[in-house]
C-alpha cells in the first residue's frame, strides 16, 4: 500500500469506492488491483469495518435519556406533551 504507484492512486478513491460511488469501469479496475494486492484488500476491509462499527454502535445505544427529554419539553413549555 505504501510503495506501489497503483496503491497510492487507489488510496485517493478509497472513500468513493467503499461508498459505491465510482463508475463501473473504475470499480472493476480497483477490484482487479485488490485481487492482486493483499495490503490494499486489508485497508479496504478494515476501513469498511471501521465505518460500520461506528454507525452500528452509535445508532443502537445513544438515545436521549428520559430526564433530558423531560427538561427539553419543559424548557419549550411543552410539558403537557411529555407523554408519548
Amino acid at each position: 500500500m505504501v510503495a506501489h504507484e497503483n496503491c497510492q492512486s487507489m488510496l485517493l478513491f478509497l472513500s468513493d469506492f467503499v461508498d459505491g460511488e465510482l463508475n463501473q469501469d473504475f470499480c472493476m479496475e480497483i477490484e482487479s488491483h485488490l485481487a492482486q494486492c493483499p495490503d490494499c484488500s486489508i485497508v479496504v476491509d478494515t476501513l469498511r469495518k471501521t465505518i460500520s462499527l461506528y454507525r452500528n454502535s452509535s445508532l443502537e445505544t445513544e438515545q436521549v435519556p428520559e430526564d433530558v427529554r423531560e427538561r427539553l419539553f419543559k424548557c419549550l413549555n411543552l410539558e403537557e406533551f411529555t407523554n408519548k
Binding site: 500500500m1 488510496l11 485517493l12 486489508i42 476491509d45 469495518k49
Partner: peptide
C-alpha cells in the same frame, strides 16, 4: 489537495 497519509497498520482484524 486530495492527498492523504498512506496507511501504516496492515493487520486484518475483521
Amino acid at each position: 489537495n486530495y492527498s492523504v497519509n498512506p496507511p501504516i497498520q496492515l493487520i486484518d482484524w475483521c
